[in-house]
Design a protein around this nucleic acid. Structure first.
Length: 931
DNA sequence: GACCTGCTGCGGGTTG
C-alpha cells in the first residue's frame, strides 16, 4: 500500500510493522476523504495521518507548502516537528515550524528555504493569512491539512476561528485540501468533522479506533467534612500516598492544590516527586516530562497541563482527586496511563464528598460505556466572525457583506448568516471606526490600530497588535490590597459572581472584609476582619460543572446502584452510596415519573429538580427576576441537583406567568445583563467589536444582545427550562411539597455552594440614569437595580465626593423622615417645584438656627447664626472661603430634646448648600412640631 | 486559592 522507501524507513525506526490503526488509516486517507481519526493517546495517531501523506508527497514531489500540520499547543509543535523532521530529512523534504516562541531568525528562514511541510498553530496561520503578504502566496499549493488534538479546540472559540481560517484558505486560492483531523475519544465526531470540512467537496469519513486497551477505575471515598486547613491536606496526602506506584500522575483541580499536596507529600518523606502546572516555567516542565519518560520520578502532581498532548512515556497509574465532572475529562486523564499494548489503563478517583462520589461513579460508568459529552460550539459567535472580517481587511481585501456571509455560512460556524446580518456587523464595525466603506466593500480604518496598537500612541485600553490574532483572552484577576500591601489575587469571575462590598473573604490564611471593589482598575481593598462563620471560602463554588450526561448517570446510580463490573469501589464508598440510595428511595419510592420537590425551611426554599447545572442556572435567573419585584434581599444557590432560594416564592404562580417559550425568553433577556457572568462574556466581546473607549458606558444594543445570547447559550439551558415549566403546566411532572428533610448529599452540596449575587456593570452610570430628575431612597434604588442595599449605599457615598463624574447628594424627606438621594445638579429644581418642595420649605422663618461648616474632617467648625430664607442663607454661605464643604450641620439655637438630631450633610458643593440648609431647618421644625 | 490553550512581517542595515 505504501512505497518501498517508506517501508524501509519504518524498519529503520525499529518498528516491527505498522499497527492496526495505521494500517486502517492508510487506505482511508489515500482515498482522499476528509477524515477524523479518533483514538486514544499513544496509539500512533501522528504517523497514521502522516505516512499516507508522505507517501503521496514522494510520488509527486509537491511544491511548498503542500502539507500544513496544525496543532493547538506550542509544546506539541516542537514535539511533532522533531518527529516529522526525522522522516522529512530521510526523504529529502523541507520542513519548518511556526509559533510565537520560534525565533525570528527561524521564522525568516521560511522565505529563503521554502518548506513543503509547515507545522504551526491556528493563530500563526491567521497571522500568515492576515499579515504576511509574501509568505501567504505559498499557501496556494496546500494539498493536505492535518489537524492534531482537534478535541482541544472544537468546542470553543478557537475552533470557530480555525474553521473560518480554513474556509478563507479554500476561497482565497480556490483549493480543496484534504483534511485529516486527529482527536482523542470525543462525543460528536461527525459534527467536528463537518466544522473543519466547511465547503470542501470531499467525502467525510470518521475512523474510530478504540484499540485493545481496557480501563479499570477504582472509586474511593475520603471523608473530609470535619477537616479544614492543614488537617485536610494531611488527610488527602495520606490517601494519595497509599496509591502511588511509579510512575503515577496525580490530577488536582487548582495550581494551589498541586503545590500544597506536593509540600504535604514531601513532608511525609516521599521523594522524587514533581509539580507540573501552567505557572511552572516551560524549561522545568520539559525537564519533568523528560524525567517521566526515563522513569526518574515516582509521581507528578499536576493540573490539566499533563492532560494535554505530548508523549510522557509509560505511566502506571492515574489518580484524580475530586469530582471528574465529565466523562470526557475522566477519559482524557485516565487515558494517560498504561501505554503498553494490551495493558489496562488504571485510574483511581478520590471523592471528597458524597455528591462527588456519586458523580465519580457516574462519570466512570459513562466513560466505560462510551457516553462522552459532545462538543458544544456557540453558534455564530459574532466576535469571531468580526475578527475574520477585520483580518481580511488587514490583508488588503475589501470585505463585502456577500463575501462575509458566504464565508461564515460555508465554514459552518454560522449556518444561517445572511447578507443582511453581515452588513449589520460591518456597519457596526464601521460605526466603531474599525472599518470604513471603500469602493467595493469595507476597508480597514485607523481605529483598528488604536485598539490593536504597535505601542505608539497607546491608550490605556489599547492592546498589543499581536493579540489581535488570538481569541484567548487574558485571565482577568482582581488584585486584593490592604493599604499598600498586596494580599493576593482573585479571579474576576469569582468576584463578579460571589463577592460584594461588606463581605468577608478568606485569603492567604486570614479573614478580610471587603471595603471597596473597583471594576475599572481591578482592585479590591480589604481590611482585616475577625473570623466569622459567614466568610466566603475562595476555593469553593467554581469547579467545572457536572455535565448532563453525568447527572443522568447519578440518577441511574441512585435508582439501580452501581452496575458496571470494571468499576471497583472501596467498602466505605459502597456503603456511602447505599446510604445515599436509601435516602433517595425514601422520597422517590419506585415511581418512575419525575417530580420536582419543594422543601421549605424557615424563610428559604429548596427546589429539588435533578435537571442539571444549566437548567438550574436558568431557573435561578428566573427566580431572581421574579423575586426582584417583591424584595431586595435575595439569596440564591445553584447546583445540578437543586436550587435554593430565599425568601420563599410561589413557584406555581411564577411558572404560570408564561404561556409560551418566547415570553419566558423575553423575561430572562430582560434581566440577563444583571447576571454576574454577563460582565465576563461582555468583556470578551468588546475588543473584537471595538466597543471600548469613551463610549463603553452606553453599550450599543448590538453588543448587548450578542453578549446576552452567548451568555444564555454558554451557561444556561432555557429550552430545557421551558420544557420543565411546560411539563409542570401539563401535569406531566408533578410539583410536590417535601415534608421530610431532603437527601443529605443535596443539602451538603448546597451548603458548600456559594450564594450568587447580581452584579451591575458600570453601577454609577446606572445610578445616574435612574436618579435623573427624581430622588429615591436606597431601598427603592436597591429594588430597581436588584442589588443589595449596602452595595448601593457604598456607591452613592462614593459618588457624592468631588471629582465624581455624576455627583449625588442626599436630603431628608420631611414627610417620611427617610433619606433620599438625587443628582447634585437636580437639587435646586427638586427643591423649588418638584414633589419634594415641602422638604425644603421651613414652617416658620423667624426662628434662628445655627449653621456649622468645615472643609475637612480635621478642621474646626465655622459657625453662623441665621434665620431661614434662601437669600439669607446664600449670603452666609458665600462668606465661606472654600468651594467644597466636607461637613455641613444645622442645629436649633436653643437647646431642646431634638438637639442631637441635628442633620449633617457631607461632601457638599457650595452652590447647593443653601438648599440643604433649608432642608435641615424644615426637618427640624417638622419634628419639633411633632413633639 | 478553578483549570488550560496563544501572541507582528519584511527587508535593509550594521557588526564581527
Amino acid at each position: 500500500m505504501i512505497s518501498e522507501r517508506l517501508v524501509m524507513l519504518v524498519r529503520e525506526k525499529g518498528w516491527a510493522s505498522l499497527n492496526e490503526l495505521q494500517l486502517k488509516s492508510i487506505g482511508i486517507v489515500k482515498r482522499g476523504d476528509n477524515v477524523l481519526i479518533t483514538a486514544p493517546t499513544g496509539s500512533g495517531k501522528t504517523e497514521a495521518a502522516l505516512l499516507p501523506v508522505l507517501d503521496e508527497m514522494l510520488r509527486t514531489s509537491p511544491e511548498p507548502v503542500s502539507l500544513l500540520y496544525i496543532t493547538p499547543m506550542r509544546a506539541l509543535i516542537n514535539d511533532v516537528f522533531n518527529r516529522i523532521k526525522w522522516w522529512a530529512d530521510k526523504l529529502g523534504l523541507t520542513i519548518a515550524r511556526k509559533h510565537g516562541e520560534v525565533s525570528q531568525r527561524e521564522k525568516n528562514m521560511r522565505n529563503k528555504v521554502k518548506p513543503q511541510i509547515l507545522v504551526l498553530t491556528p493563530e500563526s496561520l491567521k497571522i500568515d493569512l492576515d499579515w504576511a503578504p509574501r509568505f501567504r502566496e505559498n499557501y496556494r499549493s496546500v494539498r493536505w491539512i492535518i489537524i492534531d488534538e482537534v478535541h482541544e479546540i472544537a468546542g470553543n472559540k478557537r475552533g470557530a476561528q480555525l474553521s473560518l481560517l480554513l474556509e478563507r484558505l479554500r476561497k482565497l486560492f480556490s483549493i480543496d485540501p484534504q483534511i485529516i483531523a486527529l482527536s482523542a475519544t470525543i462525543g460528536s465526531p461527525e459534527e467536528v468533522l463537518e466544522l473543519i470540512s466547511g465547503s470542501s467537496s470531499r467525502r467525510r469519513t470518521v475512523l474510530t479506533y478504540n484499540g485493545t486497551r481496557k480501563s479499570s477505575i477504582l472509586v474511593e471515598y475520603l471523608d473530609t467534612s470535619r477537616f479544614t486547613g492543614d488537617e485536610y491536606w494531611a488527610k488527602v496526602a495520606w490517601k494519595v500516598l497509599g496509591e502511588i506506584e511509579p510512575v503515577t500522575i496525580v490530577f488536582v483541580q487548582s495550581r494551589y492544590a498541586a503545590e500544597r499536596l506536593f509540600k504535604e507529600l514531601s513532608s511525609l518523606g516521599l521523594e522524587e516527586i514533581a509539580v507540573h502546572h501552567s505557572s511552572v516555567s516551560g524549561e522545568i516542565k520539559e525537564d519533568i516530562e523528560d524525567k517521566m519518560r526515563k522513569g526518574y520520578v515516582k509521581a507528578v502532581i499536576t493540573t490539566r497541563t499533563l492532560e494535554l498532548g505530548i508523549d510522557i512515556g509509560y505511566i502506571k497509574k492515574v489518580v484524580v482527586v475530586g469530582s471528574p465532572a465529565t466523562a470526557l475529562s475522566l477519559a482524557q486523564k485516565v487515558g494517560r496511563s498504561g501505554h503498553r499494548e494490551g495493558e489496562e489503563s488504571r485510574g483511581v478517583v478520590i471523592a471528597t464528598s458524597v455528591a462527588e462520589l456519586l458523580e465519580s461513579v457516574a462519570a466512570a460508568e459513562n466513560m466505560l460505556e462510551g457516553i462522552i459529552e459532545p462538543q458544544k460550539l456557540i453558534p455564530c459567535p459574532l466576535d469571531i466572525i468580526a475578527r475574520e472580517a477585520l483580518g481580511m481587511a488587514l490583508s488588503g481585501v475589501e470585505v463585502t457583506p456577500e463575501i462575509l456571509a458566504s464565508l461564515a455560512r460555508d465554514s459552518k460556524v454560522c449556518r444561517d448568516f445572511d447578507e443582511e446580518q453581515a452588513r449589520r456587523l460591518l456597519d457596526f464595525l464601521s460605526s466603531r471606526k474599525l472599518m470604513k466603506r471603500g469602493d467595493k466593500g469595507y476597508r480597514l480604518s485607523s481605529g483598528f490600530f488604536k485598539i490593536w496598537s504597535f505601542g505608539r500612541d497607546k491608550k490605556w485600553w489599547s492592546r498589543d497588535f499581536s493579540e489581535f490574532f488570538t481569541v484567548i483572552s487574558e485571565r482577568e484577576v482582581f488584585q486584593v490590597r490592604h493599604g499598600e500591601n498586596t494580599i493576593g489575587e482573585l479571579d474576576s469571575q469569582f468576584v463578579y459572581r460571589y463577592l460584594r462590598v461588606g463581605d468577608t473573604v478568606r485569603l492567604a490564611g486570614r479573614s478580610w472584609r471587603v471595603i471597596d471593589i473597583d471594576d475599572n482598575s481591578k482592585k479590591i481593598s480589604v481590611a482585616p476582619a475577625p473570623r466569622e462563620t459567614s466568610e466566603i471560602p475562595v476555593w469553593r463554588g467554581l469547579a467545572q460543572s457536572v455535565s448532563n450526561e453525568v447527572l443522568i448517570g447519578v440518577i441511574n446510580v441512585l435508582r439501580r446502584g452501581v452496575s458496571k463490573e470494571n468499576i471497583l469501589l472501596s467498602e466505605e464508598a459502597r456503603s456511602i452510596i447505599e446510604k445515599a440510595r436509601e435516602e433517595w428511595m425514601r422520597i422517590n419510592g419506585d415511581e418512575a415519573e419525575s417530580k420536582v420537590w419543594v422543601h421549605e425551611k424557615g424563610d428559604s426554599q429548596v427546589i429539588i429538580t435533578f435537571m442539571g447545572q444549566r437548567i438550574n442556572e436558568a431557573l435561578g435567573l428566573l427566580l431572581l427576576s421574579a423575586l426582584s419585584r417583591v424584595t431586595t434581599s435575595i439569596s440564591l444557590k445553584v447546583t445540578p441537583y437543586a436550587v435554593m432560594v430565599k425568601p420563599k416564592i410561589d413557584l406555581g404562580e411564577v411558572f404560570g406567568r408564561f404561556s409560551c417559550f418566547n415570553e419566558l425568553k423575553r423575561e430572562l433577556l430582560r434581566v440577563v445583563d444583571r447576571h454576574p457572568l454577563y460582565v465576563s462574556v461582555l468583556n470578551e466581546l468588546r475588543y473584537s467589536l471595538g466597543a471600548i473607549g469613551d463610549k463603553s458606558d452606553e453599550e450599543k444594543e448590538f453588543v448587548k444582545s450578542e453578549a446576552s445570547r452567548q451568555l444564555l447559550h454558554q451557561y444556561m439551558d432555557i429550552d430545557g427550562l421551558w420544557v420543565m415549566i411546560n411539563s409542570l403546566r401539563k401535569g406531566e411532572i408533578e410539583l410536590r411539597k417535601l415534608e421530610s428533610e431532603p437527601p443529605s448529599f443535596i443539602t451538603e452540596e448546597l451548603s458548600s455552594t456559594l450564594e450568587l449575587k447580581p452584579w451591575y456593570r458600570d453601577l454609577s452610570g446606572a445610578l445616574q440614569k435612574l436618579l435623573k430628575g427624581w430622588a429615591f431612597t436606597v431601598e427603592e434604588i436597591s429594588e430597581a437595580l436588584l442589588l443589595p442595599a449596602r452595595t448601593i449605599e457604598h456607591k452613592l457615598k462614593e459618588m457624592r465626593k468631588p471629582g465624581s463624574k455624576a455627583r449625588v447628594t442626599k436630603f431628608i424627606d420631611t414627610e417620611t423622615g427617610e433619606a433620599r438621594w438625587c443628582l447634585m445638579d437636580d437639587l435646586p429644581g427638586l427643591a423649588s417645584d418638584g414633589d419634594f418642595r415641602e422638604s425644603f420649605t421651613p414652617l416658620d422663618n423667624k426662628q434662628p438656627f445655627q449653621l456649622k461648616i468645615k472643609a475637612d474632617s480635621d478642621d474646626a467648625y465655622m459657625e453662623f447664626v441665621f434665620t431661614p430664607s434662601l437669600s439669607v442663607i446664600s449670603e452666609i454661605i458665600n462668606k465661606v472661603p472654600f468651594d467644597e464643604i466636607y461637613e455641613l450641620q444645622v442645629q436649633p439655637l436653643v437647646n431642646g430634646i431634638y438637639r442631637n438630631l441635628s442633620p449633617r450633610y457631607y461632601f457638599v458643593k457650595k452652590s447647593i448648600a443653601p438648599y440643604l440648609v433649608l432642608n435641615g431647618v424644615a426637618y427640624l421644625q417638622k419634628i419639633k412640631g411633632l413633639e
